[in-house]
Every structure is written in structure tokens, then in C-alpha cells.
Nucleic acid binder design. Structure first.
Length: 751
DNA sequence: ATAGGGTTAG
């Protein structure tokens, strides 16, 4: 077989050479003057330049070991550079070679740091840097810092980066004006989210080059300041600098962030006019801009025209279709792409999960799970756990928890947050607390999720206590934390605590109250009966009240029977959301509470004429890992007959202990009392309770998830079932959990 | 005696 010149050995080794661990040349000095040594030295350096595959490299490596050339720092640095950066080499191999070099010089240390900085283990670059400070006789030079700073930004080590910045300033005035070092600092501050510091470095630079501008524009885009990015792009032009394709990637990304299709298209024409080369990355960022701005048509045209496509191009199209709800198209892209990596799977799974299709998300997860080539990762877990949470699928969620442990998928803060949220939303607050306590790292999301879990289970006091603990743990609360802790106060009637937190959030914690917080506060005051104060708060909100704020006020009116204020709040809701059925229900309940039946029937008539559709009630219950769904008056379940006869039995038995159907909240236009009563028995949660009673073990609670607020009648019904049948029922409605046990509910009839 | 920085999706 013919051997190509490339595969032929570079060296034919004399037979007397033997493999040995390197021993220093007799003079034991790093530079050797002996003639033979110099000749070898020269020949070997030439050989290094000729290496074109890993075998060549290893041969030269072996040869150098034999000739003790590793003791010449220059020669070994030459070889090492190839080991670290040749495409055919690996970093592991480079590290092995490095470990054999007796006295790596500064160049070699720098090369190792650089190699790690852009590897998948950038933290090792920082470690090597520390080693270098101890072991290398030379101080870091102007090449060292850009690499270490790059590593610091890769691992988002903001503290480390700041220290490095200080070191740079102290080390030499040459360093603090080195354009490479300063550019890397801009990049570092940008990627750590500190746009202001990035800009300070940028603005103070005397000699900015195109990379400085690109880094700063990118920092603005990534720091969520697209306006500033575009402004800087304009300034760059005014300063006579020609933008590169890297500039245009950032600018395109700014357009995508602003959802500004028109400007995006202008930028595309700018690229053409200025003959800026279309790299694959730039094409991809154009695709991204088109899909984010909603023009799948333009994206498609570009996509079909692109000569080179990579996984990013395909995924961008996939996500674009999925976001628009075009699942068929998204699936077509998914199956058409050359290979589906985990990101593609995740994109499709999370698209389903985030668009109210949790069942489809889980179906896809099953398929992924039997796939041999792709492994679920942490992002997959986050999406699927959220799908479980939506469905109340506790068994499946628990299974995913076990799966993650078994597969050794690390429970980072994102996964921990999702687990806590899943357990809480599926009704297992104990398990949620367990995950919380076992977590080895708790960021603001983890704490907030736990507070939210306690809140929805009516454990307001515990939620507020946990908030205090969070402060003790020196974790800074954010807007979500406050929404959760305030909603805890509202669910548990903690008026004093709520007031205090609300008034402190801005001045003490620097979190400005937003719509959600005002909504919670209106809820807290309203439920407690301070209707006027609640109404005043709505009046003096610094932003326009949303429908949900008015709904909170309306809800409070319905509890306390204040028709006048209810009408006013209702007007506002209809102004913002003319088809909000919930507002009709709450107003009608207010009239019912006040005994104003005339108004109730008038409202019903109005509803029928306006054609406002009620969101169909739907209850989910998981039995043996399968989620069963019940709609109003559903009889699609195979056990339907049994379910209805069980329901008949329930009604009879409950009536015998005093159950009186409460028809006041019914809004259907039916006159006969008999028919009204039948309508009540069609409610999905009653069907789910009957099903739960006949198909689950008496020892476990019946867990039900309902899409809308539970009605008063079903609430009393569930309380009685929990007493008469001695069964715990956990019912999650749109807003919170109801724990029915021994005839009582954890919400204390206050929901 | 050797060298380097900035870019896209989820």
C-alpha cells in the first residue's frame, strides 16, 4: 500500500537511541553551546514546523525527549505551542507535554493559559495563572493579561476580573494603555453584566481600534441596551471607522432585541452597500433578527439562499416557527436538520412547554429519552419539570428528579428552582422543602421559588420567615421575590407584614414596585376589608393599572359585597379587556352577596348578548403516571359511567349531612332550579374527585389541578368529601392551593 | 528569537 508523504515518518531513528526519562544535559544549563547539541536543536526546530498531524507531532515529541531538547526552553516552547493550538492536537495532550517541560518559559505559560481560556474549562486558565505566579521567574507580560482576563469573563468571575484589572494598573503604565488588554477588559465587564464599567474603560481609551468598538457595541447589546449599541454604531461611522462583520452581528442582534424589523432590514441593506462580507455567523444573526421580529418569510428566503448552514442556522429557524405556534413547520425543520443536538430537542420541548402544550412537551421528552445519541441536559430538565408542574404530574416529575440523580446531571440553581416549583405546584410542599434544604447552592431564584411554593400552599407566615432567612443569607431579593412574598401575605391575610414589605422594597432593597406588586398590595388590603385604602392605592399608582389590578380590587369587592366599587372596577377591566369573563363572574358574585338578584339576572342577560365566552373549566388528575383530563360535563373517560354513578352517590351522601348546592355563582341562563343543580354536578373538579375516589388508594391524597378559580359550590363540596370520606384533597386552582382535610380547607374559605 | 483581542440559538 502506498503511503502518502504526509503519513510517512518524519524521522528515521538511529537504532542506538533509547527511550528514557529526560535527564538534563551535562552542563545543566538551559542554553547549551556544544556543537552537536546546536545542530540537533536546529534540525528539530525545522521538524516542528513540518508537523501536519498528531503522529508527526508525537514523533517529534519523542525525538526531543531523546535528545534532551526539553531543557531548552525555546525549543520546548515551540513544540508546546503546536500541541496547544494545532487543530489535530488536544488540550489533554498539550497539558501532558507541558508537565514534562522542566522549566517552561513565560511564552509557554502564556500559551497554556490562552489554550485553557478558550477551552471548555476556562477556570483551569485561572488556576494555571496562579501556578505561573509561583513557578515562573518572569512576571506576567502584556500577552498574559488578555488571556487571563478572557478566562475570567468566560467563567463570569467578576471578582477575579476586577483584581486582574487592578493588577494591570499597578504592574505597568504600558499595560494600562495596551489596546489588547483594554479590549479584553471591555469584553470582561460586558460579559459580567457591568455595562457601565465596560464603557468607562472604553471611554478612557486613547487609541481605540475596531475591536474596541466591536467589544463595546457587543457589551451594550448583551447588557440589554440595544439603543446605546446602535448609537455607538452611529458614532463609530462618524469617527470614520469601517464596521466589520463582527460589528454587524452585534448591530443585528440589537435590532432583534428591539424587535425592529424595519431598521433590521435597513442594516441588511447597509451590509450589502458597504460590501461587508457575509460570514456564517452574520447570516445566522440576520436569520435570528428576522425570526424574532416575526418575519419568517424573510428568514426562510435567506435560509434557503445560505450556502453554508450550521446547527445554529437550523435551530434559529426551528425556534422561529415554534414561537409563532407553527409546530408543524418547526417539526419539519427538526427532522430535516442534519443532526439533532440536545439544543434542537430543547428548543422544541420548551416551545411546547411555554405555549401551554405541556403534554406535547412530555411526549417529546419520552422520545428523547429512548434516543441513544443525545442525552438530556439541565435545560431539558427545566422544561420538562415545568411541563410536569403545569399538569400537576407529580409521579412523572418525581421520576425526572430520580432520573437526573441517576444520570449524574448536576442540579444547578436552574434545575433546583424547577424542582422546587414542580413539587410545590404538584402539591408536595414537603418534597419541595426537602429539595430546598438539600441544595448546595441557593441563588435568588431558588429562594424565590421556595417562597412562592409556601405562598401558594397558604403558609404565609413560613414564607415571610423564609424571606427573612434569605436576607440573613445575604441573597439580594429581586422583583420576583417581592411578588412572591407579597402574594404570600395576600393568601394568608398578613396585612401588617405586607404593608411593611411593600413600603420597604424601594427604599431598603432598591426594587421599585411594579404592576405585580401593586396588584398584590391591592389584594392584601382588599381582602382585609380595607377597600377604600385599596382603591386609593390604585388611584395613586405611578403606572397605568392593568386589568389584573382592577380584578384584584373587584375580587375584594365580591368578598365584602361592595357593589358600587365593584361596578367601577369592572368598568375598568372591560375597558382594558372587553371579553374578560372572570370580571362578569366576580361582579355577579358581588350582586349575589348583596342579595341583588335583579342585577344578577340582568348581568346574565347582558353576558349572553355580548357573547362573552367563559374559559372552559378543566381539571387534571394524575393516576399511576398518566394525566387524566376532565372538562365540564365530560364523558369521554372510559370509566365515565362509574364516575357519574359515584358522583350520584357522593351527592346523596353529602346531602344527608347537610350539603346544599350553592347556585348563586352560576352564570348560565337556565331558569329551572333542577337544571341549575345538574349544571353544578357537571363541574370538572367534581368529576375529577369522583374519579380520584374510585381509582386511587385511600391512603394517598387526591391531587387535582384546575385551570380556573374554583367555584364556591365545588369548594364546599370538596370540604365535605374530605370529611365524610376521610380523604385528603389537594386542589390547585389558577391562583393557589386548597388542602381539604377533615371538612376544612387550608385557605380558611378566604380565596 | 515565538504570540494576542471582538460575533450568532437555547
Amino acid at each position: 500500500m502506498a503511503t502518502s508523504t504526509l503519513d510517512a515518518p518524519l524521522l528515521s531513528l538511529p537504532s542506538h537511541t533509547h527511550l528514557a526519562t529526560p535527564t538534563p544535559p551535562s552542563t545543566a544549563s538551559p542554553t547549551v553551546n556544544n556543537d552537536r547539541y546546536c545542530a540537533n536543536h536546529h534540525r528539530t526546530l525545522k521538524l516542528i514546523g513540518k508537523c501536519s498531524n498528531i503522529d508527526h507531532l508525537k514523533q517529534v515529541h519523542a525525538h526531543m525527549l531523546r535528545l534532551n531538547l526539553f531543557f531548552d526552553p525555546y525549543s520546548s516552547s515551540k513544540l508546546f505551542n503546536l500541541c496547544a493550538f494545532a487543530h489535530y492536537s488536544t488540550l489533554d495532550y498539550a497539558q501532558q507535554v507541558f508537565d514534562q517541560i522542566p522549566q517552561p518559559n513565560l511564552f509557554t505559560w502564556n500559551a497554556l493559559i490562552r489554550a485553557y481560556a478558550s477551552s471548555s474549562n476556562p477556570d483551569k486558565a485561572l488556576f494555571v495563572f496562579l501556578q505561573m505566579l509561583h513557578l515562573c521567574p518572569d512576571s506576567p507580560n502584556k500577552f498574559t493579561f488578555p488571556f487571563v482576563i478572557k478566562a475570567a469573563s468566560e467563567v463570569m468571575a467578576s471578582g477575579v476580573g476586577r483584581v486582574l484589572h487592578g493588577t494591570v494598573i499597578k504592574a505597568s503604565p504600558h499595560f494600562s494603555s495596551d489596546v489588547f488588554i483594554l479590549n479584553s477588559l471591555i469584553h470582561f465587564y460586558g460579559s459580567c453584566g457591568d455595562v457601565n464599567l465596560a464603557y468607562r474603560v472604553f471611554a478612557n481609551m486613547l487609541d481605540k481600534d475596531v475591536v474596541s468598538w466591536n467589544s463595546m457595541i457587543t457589551a451594550f447589546v448583551q447588557g440589554d441596551c440595544p439603543e446605546e449599541a446602535l448609537e455607538l454604531f452611529r458614532q463609530m461611522e462618524m469617527n470614520g471607522l469601517k464596521p466589520t462583520n463582527v460589528t454587524m452581528v452585534a448591530v443585528m442582534s440589537a435590532c432583534a432585541k428591539k424587535l425592529d424589523l424595519e431598521f433590521g432590514k435597513w442594516v441588511c441593506s447597509f451590509i450589502e452597500r458597504n460590501e461587508i462580507g457575509l460570514s456564517l455567523t452574520l447570516n445566522n444573526s440576520m436569520l435570528d433578527m428576522y425570526t424574532k421580529c416575526g418575519s419568517l418569510e424573510d428568514a426562510r428566503v435567506l435560509f434557503d439562499r445560505m450556502a453554508e448552514k450550521d446547527i445554529v442556522s437550523w435551530t434559529t429557524m426551528l425556534v422561529g416557527y415554534a414561537r409563532m405556534g407553527k409546530y408543524d413547520e418547526a417539526q419539519r425543520v427538526f427532522y430535516a436538520m442534519p443532526n439533532q443536538d440536545i439544543a434542537a430537542w430543547n428548543a422544541l420541548i420548551s416551545a411546547y412547554e411555554q405555549n401551554g402544550k405541556p403534554k406535547e412537551a412530555l411526549t417529546l421528552f419520552y422520545k428523547l429519552q429512548v434516543n441513544k445519541h443525545v442525552m438530556p441536559d439541565q435545560i431539558t430538565l427545566v422544561s420538562t419539570l415545568s411541563a410536569c408542574a403545569q399538569l400537576g404530574a407529580l409521579d412523572l416529575g418525581g421520576w425526572i428528579h430520580v432520573y437526573a440523580k441517576k444520570r449524574g446531571i448536576k442540579l444547578n440553581c436552574h434545575v433546583t428552582t424547577s424542582l422546587i416549583d414542580m413539587y410545590a405546584k404538584c402539591g408536595d410542599i414537603k418534597k419541595a422543602l426537602e429539595v430546598f434544604q438539600m441544595a448546595d447552592r441557593r441563588d435568588v431564584c431558588v429562594w424565590s421559588a421556595m417562597i412562592s411554593g409556601l405562598a401558594m400552599h397558604g403558609q404565609g407566615k413560613a414564607a415571610v420567615d423564609l424571606f427573612e432567612k434569605m436576607l440573613e443569607a445575604k441573597v439580594k431579593p429581586n422583583d420576583v421575590t417581592f411578588t412572591n412574598v407579597l402574594s404570600a401575605c395576600s393568601h394568608s391575610g398578613l396585612v401588617r407584614e405586607g404593608r411593611a414589605l411593600f413600603s420597604q422594597m424601594g427604599p431598603v432593597y432598591g426594587v421599585m414596585p411594579g404592576l405585580m406588586h401593586y396588584g398584590c398590595m391591592v389584594d392584601i388590603l382588599g381582602r382585609a376589608g380595607c377597600l377604600e385604602e385599596a382603591a386609593e392605592l390604585v388611584e395613586k399608582m405611578p403606572m397605568v393599572p392593568s386589568a389584573s389590578v382592577w380584578l384584584s380590587l373587584l375580587g375584594a369587592c365580591s368578598i365584602h359585597g361592595n357593589s358600587e366599587l365593584a361596578e367601577k372596577a369592572c368598568c375598568h377591566v372591560f375597558h382594558l379587556e372587553p371579553n374578560n369573563h372572570g370580571a362578569f363572574v366576580l361582579l355577579s358574585n358581588t350582586y349575589a352577596k348583596a342579595g341583588n338578584w335583579e342585577r344578577v339576572s340582568c348581568l346574565r342577560k347582558q353576558m349572553r348578548e355580548s357573547g362573552v365566552k367563559k374559559e372552559k373549566g378543566c381539571s387534571l388528575i394524575e393516576v399511576d403516571g398518566t394525566v387524566h383530563e376532565f372538562l365540564v360535563g365530560d364523558n369521554s373517560n372510559p370509566l365515565s359511567e362509574k364516575i357519574y354513578s359515584k358522583l350520584d352517590e357522593l351527592v346523596t351522601r353529602l346531602k344527608s349531612v347537610g350539603y346544599v348546592p350553592n347556585k348563586s355563582e352560576l352564570l348560565q341562563l337556565v331558569e329551572e332550579e333542577e337544571v341549575k343543580e345538574q349544571a353544578l354536578y357537571q363541574h370538572s373538579e367534581k368529576l375529577a374527585i369522583s374519579f380520584g375516589l374510585i381509582s386511587t388508594s385511600p391512603l394517598v391524597p387526591i391531587r387535582i389541578v384546575k385551570n380556573i378559580r374554583v367555584c364556591g359550590d365545588c369548594h364546599s363540596f370538596a370540604k365535605l368529601v374530605s370529611e365524610v370520606y376521610d380523604r385528603q384533597i389537594l386542589l390547585r386552582d389558577r391562583y393557589r392551593f386548597h388542602h381539604f382535610k377533615g371538612g376544612k380547607c387550608s385557605c380558611k374559605d378566604y380565596w
